[in-house]
Each structure stands twice: as structure tokens, then as C-alpha cells.
């Protein structure tokens, strides 16, 4: 695309300004994580020196590595569960014609309109009665069936030419092998998108882990951060921010890696 110089300058200025505004909280948190208490209170932006005291203290005070591991297991579990359940559900909606399939699908979709908080209490009772409090399955299982994910994958599966399905039928592929060998590889882009979405949402989840965990055994990082904040009368913000930075690193990593994958997938383009 060619742009005139003044136009370019305007665009880049606007982009820079919005980037600075958006990124400011993270940068500020990053700066605070190197400051001592008095420095923070003085309202400085740059710390006097970059030392890792706050980071050492955050790992001292909390089993942060443990929390990170828990978060990772829970997020990865939810991601995999969502991918499996949603892709199979979407496959059924697209490739297996049955009576009322559209009705069932819209019923499925309509659950998107019910806020998650409304179903939280029944979900909690189920988990409690299954004795799944403080377990990984209690943290992950309620999130496997995701209407949004089914919808996303269904839309992608629908773009797969039906001739591919027919060609594999003629070649002798059963429904499940067609799913594994054709549908999934062809829909890699959507699967990556859904995977990243599922992972990040679960990583940032706060309320549900708070409800179903009562001890440190399976607690996730988001709760750990909250603990940092309320453990003392006067919160040591430097330590909290050090925790925050540690917690968002995996998220950012995933975003960067995922973005590359996504771009690759998107630029591949469809084959007529």
C-alpha cells in the first residue's frame, strides 16, 4: 500500500499514542516491580536501580512456582478439553445430518446468552457433591463444552467442500478417520485460535478457582496474586507487581507464538 508522507505521519502518530496508552499499565507495573516502598510512594516512574529484590521476595512469600504449574495444568487441560469436545460437536453438526440438527445447534448457541455467573452456583454444587473441590478436574471440567468454540469450529468446518467428505467416503475412510485425517488438519487455523482463546481465558480466570480451591494444592496464580495483596495491612506493591510480571510472561509468550502460527495459517489461504 502506498501512502502519502503526511498521511503516514498521522497514522504512525496515532498508532504510537494508542500503543503507549495501552501499554502504559504494563510498563508501569514492570517499573514498580523494581522499586522499593518509598520510591513507589514518591510516584516515580523510573526506579533508581534495577535489582531483583522484589522478585526474590515474591517467590519467598508464595509458592509461586507451584501456582504457575497449577495454572498451566488447568489452562492446558481446559484448552485440550475444549478442543476435543468442541471439534467433535462441530463435526456432528456439520457432517452428520440428523433430524433437528439445526434446532439443537441453536439451542447450543443460545446458551451463550446465559452469563456464566448464573450457572456458577449449580455448577459449584455439582462439583462439591462429586467431592471434586481442590482437584484439577473440578477446575477444568465445567469449561469443556463451550458454545462459542463449537460455533467457531462449525463455521470453519462448513467451508470444507463436501466433495472432500465424499472423496474420502469413496476412498473408504470412516467418519472418525475422516475427522482425524482431513477435517482437523484442514482446520488448523481455527483450532489454534480456539486453543489460544481457551488457554488465555482459563489462565486469567479468577472467580471459579477461588470457589473450588480451599488450600494451596491446586490453587492458580490469579488467586496467588490476590493473596499477595491482602496478606499485609499495607500492601507491598513492588512485590505484587513482581508477581504480576511473572504471571503475565507465559500469557505474552503464548500470544507471540500463537500470533505467528495464526498469521501463517491465515495467509495460507483456502484452496478452491
Amino acid at each position: 500500500m502506498t501512502m502519502s508522507v503526511p498521511k503516514k505521519i498521522t497514522f504512525y502518530t496515532m498508532l504510537t499514542v494508542s500503543a503507549v496508552i495501552l501499554f502504559f499499565p504494563i510498563v508501569y507495573a514492570f517499573m514498580i516491580s523494581f522499586m522499593t516502598g518509598p520510591e513507589i510512594l514518591q510516584g516515580k516512574f523510573f526506579p533508581e536501580s534495577f535489582h531483583l529484590d522484589n522478585y526474590i521476595r515474591v517467590f519467598d512469600r508464595l509458592p509461586l512456582l507451584n501456582y504457575l504449574l497449577n495454572s498451566f495444568i488447568v489452562s492446558a487441560g481446559v484448552m485440550l478439553g475444549q478442543l476435543v469436545v468442541c471439534s467433535l460437536a462441530a463435526y456432528a453438526f456439520v457432517f452428520i445430518p440428523f433430524r433437528g440438527s439445526n434446532f439443537v445447534f441453536f439451542l447450543f448457541i443460545s446458551t451463550m446468552m446465559i452469563p456464566w455467573e448464573a450457572t456458577m452456583i449449580p455448577n459449584f454444587f455439582i462439583i462439591q457433591n462429586l467431592n471434586w473441590l481442590n482437584t484439577y478436574q473440578g477446575l477444568t471440567l465445567p469449561f469443556f463444552a463451550l458454545a462459542f468454540g463449537t460455533f467457531l469450529l462449525r463455521q470453519h468446518f462448513k467451508t470444507i467442500p463436501k466433495e472432500l467428505h465424499e472423496a474420502s467416503q469413496v476412498a473408504g475412510l470412516g467418519p472418525f478417520r475422516f475427522f482425524l485425517k482431513v477435517v482437523l488438519p484442514v482446520s488448523k487455523t481455527s483450532l489454534v485460535t480456539l486453543g489460544a482463546y481457551g488457554f488465555l481465558t482459563t489462565w486469567n480466570m479468577y472467580l471459579w478457582p477461588l470457589l473450588v480451591t480451599t488450600n494451596n494444592s491446586v490453587r492458580t496464580v490469579q488467586i496467588g496474586l490476590k493473596q499477595l495483596q491482602s496478606q499485609e495491612v499495607a500492601t507491598d506493591w513492588g512485590v505484587v507487581m513482581a508477581g504480576v510480571i511473572v504471571v503475565i510472561i507465559p500469557t505474552l509468550l503464548l500470544l507471540f507464538l500463537g500470533q505467528k502460527q495464526l498469521q501463517k495459517g491465515l495467509t495460507q489461504g483456502a484452496l478452491k
Binding site: P161, E166, A167, V170, A270, L271, K272
Partner: peptide
């Protein structure tokens, strides 16, 4: 016991 060729070829893109 047959093979079929489709109008849009139906090649597996991946």
C-alpha cells in the same frame, strides 16, 4: 470398488 473424480477435484489441501 470404484473411484471417482469430482468437478472441483476434491484434493486434500493439506
Amino acid at each position: 470398488d470404484l473411484s471417482m473424480v469430482f468437478q472441483n477435484y476434491a484434493l486434500y489441501p493439506h
